[in-house]
Design a protein around this nucleic acid. Structure first.
Lengths: 147, 147
DNA sequence: GTGATACTGAGAGTCGTTCTCAATGAAGCC
DNA sequence: GGCTTCATTGAGAACGACTCTCAGTATCAC
């Protein structure tokens, strides 16, 4: 994406990137801040927010809004991928299943948009929540239920 | 969706629903509040937020998070549909192009999720912004650029 | 070493949203 | 009609997430 020069790799930025790479649960900015503080107790929240924005803008991380109305989440996996979000426990897992190019072209043709990307989240119940049936608030009708 | 009884149709709720039905631009809750106040100046913001949540939970409206990190948006079009969001002007338009059932089944099989729905937004430039090239902040890399 | 610039932490401020609570009003019963 | 019950309301405080400001610090090029 944008050029990767002009980016000073300070200890604080390294710490944020490390936390993001070590996480497999798509942490929110507040969670990243909390984890970074364990390694670098003196770091400020503004620095974490700034660094996350920087990592996103330079293509080193992805910002996700998982449609639950909550805070943005971050993902160090910058390969093209989608997400499945569990209505029971809120967990989000990565999916490798790109939208077919033909579908993108069809959308572009019908809407007149010059499509540059998309954002796709499936919702449902993860295997754990299906088994234990510990579905708390199924956010019924939240966005696009009963597809 | 859920039962439509047990919902008292007060003037305030009517006003919110009217605003939502008259809007074709997916207003935020704050925008809905502002428009409702023109018709019912005495209405409070809590009432508008409560009513929007109620309309969503009873299936009379959809809540959208268009991935721009901004506030939730609302849509009185409750038919199954997706959105295309312009990176130039931020406008969101409705799309009628459901994800193929086969793809949903494939995702469910691979992830182990019991998929109940999905949320799909395309991003790019609307015809107007392509023409005038007045793209301000293309939110580059925001979620899933360069698909 | 010096000056310019990028970066930092602290904390106040902003924004969108939710919560609390007393007042109001509609429905149901007698 | 009078009473009770309970849903609904508006006002405003509170909350969480995030951004902005600013003075101090670190790093770079020369």
């Amino acid at each position: 994406m944008t050029d990767q020069t002009d980016l000073r790799l300070t200890p604080q930025r390294m710490a944020v990137l490390e936390v993001l790479r070590a996480a497999d649960d798509h942490p929110t900015a507040a969670e990243v801040y909390e984890r970074v503080r364990r390694a670098s107790p003196g770091i400020g929240s503004a620095t974490v927010y700034r660094t996350l924005a920087l990592l996103v803008s330079t293509g080193r991380a992805l910002e996700l809004t998982l449609g639950d109305g909550a805070a943005a989440r971050y993902d160090a996996n910058t390969r093209r991928h989608d997400h499945a979000v569990c209505d029971g426990c809120g967990r989000a897992v990565d999916l490798d299943h790109p939208v077919p190019d033909g579908m993108m072209a069809e959308i572009a043709r019908r809407s007149g948009f010059a499509i540059t990307g998309y954002d796709l989240q499936f919702r449902g119940l993860c295997p754990d929540c299906q088994g234990s049936d510990r579905q708390t608030t199924p956010s019924e009708g939240a966005l696009h239920a009963e597809a």
